[in-house]
Structure formats: C-alpha cells, structure tokens
Computed example of a mutant assay.
Amino acid sequence: MQRENESIGWALAFEFVPAAIFGSAVAFASATYLAQPPVSVAPIAAGAAALGGIWLALGKFGSPRRQFALTDFEQTPVEYELSSLGELLEQADVAGIVEQLGASGDKTSTEELVLDDVLAAVEEDSRVVRLFEPSDTAGEMHARIEDHLRSTPRQTPPDATQELHDALAALRRSLR
C-alpha cells in the first residue's frame, strides 16, 4: 500500500501495525469465545482474516496522498535594533568584567579553611552549649540531646495575626 514519496516506515506505522493489533485482538476474542487455546487453528485463522481485511481497508481508505506540493521558500533575516543597554553589553568585554569581579572560571587556589579553635571550657554566662564530646557513643549523644531538649523551655511563637491584617489593610489602602 505504498504510495509515491512514502517510505515503508509510514506504511508499517499507520497501516500494518494497527491491522496487526486488531487481528491479534480478534484472535484472542475468538479463542476465548470458542474456549480453545490461542494457538489453535480457528483463532489464528480469524485473526489472520481480520488482519488482512483491516490492512486492505486502511490501505484503500487511509489518508489520501498529498494533493498540494509544498514549495521551498527563502527565509528573510529579521532586523532588530539593540537598546542602549544591549549595545553596551555587546561592546563590553564580559570575560574581563567577570575576572575583575573575582568570579573567574579558574579554581587554582585550593586554600582550605581549617577551624582549629577548640572550645576548651564553657563559661557560665555563655550562650554556647556543648552537646557532644569527641569520645561520645551514639547512645550518650542521644541521651544528651534528649536532656538538652527537656531542659530548655518551649517557646511559643508570638501571634502576629493582627499585625499581618494591619499590614495588608495598609497595603490595600496604598494601592487605591
């Protein structure tokens, strides 16, 4: 069912594959209806007949061949004007600007930040809390965290509903 200027792929995709799907569905349905195994003669014959009939119908009544030829056309370039900012960016040396700002692509400096300031002793009025020791086990860490969480009072966040309503009302008034 191949027409002029068509490849075999189109014929397979739009004529044979749908016919094969329909034929296999008919074969399965007839095997189920006749209570026979799907590979017996009657279901295979019914599926083959359905495949052939649908394949011929799709080839005959399928999509018509192209009636109108598409002509090639020449694409004209689009003319546009740059804004003053666009002109400045076009003239600027972007790579030089980036290097001046310190964001160059070279990652040659491999300085490591080493924190060796060990907190030796916690003062009484300090806000620093030491939860872990280097030699703690997982169970000791868990117990210490639980003790810390139980010892600190829970603070409820303040209710800022009224302030939010006031701010929204002020915003609405300013927009009018």
Score class of each variant (00 low, 15 high):
100 Q>M: 07
66 R>T: 00
72 D>Q: 05
117 D>E: 14
163 E>W: 01
102 G>I: 04
84 S>D: 15
120 A>T: 13
150 R>E: 10
80 Y>S: 12
67 Q>G: 01
168 L>F: 06
160 A>V: 11
73 F>E: 08
98 V>H: 00
76 T>Q: 15
161 T>F: 14
105 G>E: 06
82 L>C: 10
157 P>A: 01
67 Q>R: 05
108 T>V: 01
110 T>D: 03
157 P>C: 02
102 G>L: 05
132 F>P: 03
115 L>Y: 03
119 L>S: 05
89 L>I: 12
84 S>A: 15
90 E>H: 01
143 A>P: 08
80 Y>H: 11
111 E>F: 01
162 Q>W: 06
147 D>I: 05
75 Q>D: 10
141 M>T: 12
159 D>Q: 06
90 E>R: 08
151 S>F: 09
154 R>N: 00
119 L>T: 07
171 L>K: 13
113 L>M: 03
135 S>C: 05
74 E>L: 13
125 D>Q: 14
78 V>Q: 11
135 S>Y: 13
163 E>H: 06
95 A>P: 02
86 G>H: 09
118 V>K: 15
158 P>L: 11
121 A>L: 02
167 A>G: 00
103 A>F: 12
76 T>M: 11
115 L>I: 09
73 F>V: 13
133 E>R: 09
155 Q>Y: 02
148 H>C: 09
117 D>L: 11
84 S>T: 15
134 P>F: 12
68 F>T: 11
123 E>R: 13
135 S>E: 14
105 G>H: 01
66 R>Y: 02
83 S>L: 07
80 Y>G: 09
91 Q>N: 06
92 A>I: 01
147 D>S: 14
146 E>Q: 12
133 E>W: 06
158 P>N: 04
140 E>Q: 15
132 F>T: 08
162 Q>L: 08
96 G>Q: 04
164 L>C: 07
169 A>T: 01
106 D>T: 05
104 S>E: 03
153 P>T: 04
104 S>T: 05
149 L>C: 12
128 V>W: 10
171 L>P: 02
77 P>I: 09
63 S>I: 11
166 D>Y: 00
115 L>W: 04
111 E>A: 02
81 E>L: 07
79 E>V: 13
123 E>L: 08
122 V>K: 12
120 A>V: 15
95 A>W: 03
164 L>D: 07
163 E>G: 12
171 L>E: 07
90 E>F: 10
93 D>C: 07
123 E>I: 10
71 T>Y: 06
116 D>H: 04
141 M>K: 15
132 F>A: 13
74 E>Q: 13
64 P>L: 09
